[in-house]
Nucleic acid binder design. Structure first.
Length: 413
RNA sequence: GGAGAGGUGGCAGAGCGGCUGAAUGCGCCACAUUGCUAAUGUGGUGUCCUCGCAAGGGGACCGGGGGUUCGAAUCCCCCCCUCUCCGCCA
């Protein structure tokens, strides 16, 4: 949420930001409404003040003329109050659509303007044609898509046997790495109300991305980020940073992605994710943004998965973001890097929306938030494909073995 | 799902039509006292909107929304939430 004061102070900067981020918001209308809100509010306060002093002078006895006068004041008050509500609703709606300001490091442009920060790891070379993960998954009895489709619909999958152990093992491994930094596990509700989605900045922007429960003010979360922001709405935090690892299933409609990545488990309606959520002092946001990225990279390095880090361009970032890194893993069957994790610094955009404040000593303000994937089920794609051998078996990375009962290789059944 | 109770400041807890932005206690801050700590005393201690250079002024907020009234934290209606008992249940 961009505060009204900031819009008043620098309307041109807000307009420029909208232009760069492709947001169609009428900033002048906001300014006009804001002015009207003030003048209308002043009249309202004036009338209310009159009502107050008048009724205070009343001292019990209600005479006819006095009543008429008071009723007239009340009529005026109702009128002005109704108008105030209209103005505020309109204003709120419009302001809600304003995207966050960008960090100065963000490259301006579309997908093509994304910058490769670094490439890490050696891409495996195979003396056979590497199989795509969905084939390996079937061969090794790890992923059963047809039967999940049978029970649900397309874009669902059954994770089976050792694959579930992989998920658990990875979660444990990542958690053990992050815990000493202060990250605390939270397995939150996967259904949240609209206000929570608004706070995290998913509403009103991506209305269609969440599955909605009929006749309820509840939607399935697309990421535990949503729950973990809703968690602290209206709170005044007295300690920062607050570091969480959100453990949850995530649900996405993938509306508008028909025909895209239909094979395998890259783009699905439901998946598991361990998410790093940071609430921190504004001065520390940059530091934690980098730490979260290091954590993501740590895991991939430990697993020997080649990856690249991308600094995302303005056009490739959702409205709440100030700056975002994506980490993409090498996918041998496709011969390209694909997004595995995503790490966004939201500034105070979300905490302002959710009225999440901090008060530490004499200092008050809105904490900054960072949402960064730890890992999600997508990592299995990279794990299987990069670890595969000619016979379809998959070698488990050494560092992961302790979490897998020392299992070294997953063999075809 | 059925029956009852309740939602007040950072917390606990009064108030149940005007003198209440709200008693009292705890916490917190400042000052005083004090070898240190503890204890004690005095004062202060919410958020938001708005006018003002400032000092300061006006307004809103006692779960949310509507209503009654000259006047509502207090009365009425609707919704949400919490607790207790019963039922059901992984």
């Amino acid at each position: 949420m961009i505060p009204l004061k900031a819009i008043e102070a620098a309307p041109d900067a807000v307009k420029a930001n909208c232009r760069v981020r492709g947001a169609d918001v009428d900033v002048d209308a906001i300014l006009r409404l804001n002015d009207e809100r003030k003048t209308n509010g002043q009249e309202l306060d004036q009338v209310r003040s009159e009502i107050k002093t008048f009724s205070k002078a009343q001292k019990g006895a209600p005479d006819e003329a006095a009543r008429e006068h008071a009723k007239e004041l009340r009529r005026k008050e109702n009128e002005l109050a109704a108008r105030a509500r209209e103005i505020e609703d309109d204003l709120e709606q419009r302001v809600a659509w304003l995207p966050n300001f960008l960090d100065e490091r963000v490259p301006i442009g579309g997908e093509d303007a994304n910058e490769v920060v670094r490439e890490v790891g050696d891409k495996p070379s195979f003396d056979f044609t590497p199989r795509p993960h969905e084939e390996l998954g079937e061969l090794l009895d790890l992923i059963d898509i047809p039967r999940a489709v049978n029970a649900s619909k397309s874009r669902f999958y059954n994770l089976k046997g050792t694959a579930v152990l992989l998920r658990w093992g990875l979660a444990r491994m990542f958690q053990e790495h992050c815990a000493p930094q202060g990250f605390e596990l939270v397995a939150p509700p996967v259904l949240t109300k609209d206000r929570t989605l608004f706070t995290s900045g998913y509403l009103p922007f991506s209305q269609k991305d969440n599955f909605r429960i009929q006749d309820e003010d509840l939607s399935l979360i697309g990421t535990s980020e949503q729950s973990l922001l809703g968690m602290h709405m209206d709170e005044v935090l007295t300690e920062l940073p607050k570091l969480y690892l959100g453990d949850s299933m995530c649900f996405r409609t993938e509306a508008g992605n028909y025909g895209k990545d239909v094979k395998g488990i890259l783009r699905v309606h439901q998946f598991y994710k361990l998410e790093q959520i940071v609430y921190c002092h504004p001065d520390e946001a940059r530091k934690w943004h980098e730490i979260c990225l290091e954590n993501e990279e740590w895991l991939l390095t430990e697993l020997g998965i080649p990856y690249q880090v991308l600094l995302m361009a303005s056009g490739d970032m959702a409205a709440p973001g100030r700056i975002k890194y994506d980490v993409e893993a090498w996918i041998p069957s496709q011969g390209i890097y694909r997004e595995l994790t995503s790490n966004t610094d939201m500034g105070d955009y979300q905490t302002r929306r959710g009225k999440i404040r901090f008060k530490i000593g004499k200092e008050k303000g809105f904490p900054h938030t960072i949402s960064a994937t730890g890992f999600s089920d997508r990592i299995l794609i990279a794990l299987l494909e990069n670890g595969q051998r000619a016979d379809g078996s998959v070698v488990i990375p050494e560092k992961l073995r302790p979490y897998m009962g020392d299992l070294e290789v997953i063999e075809p059944r």
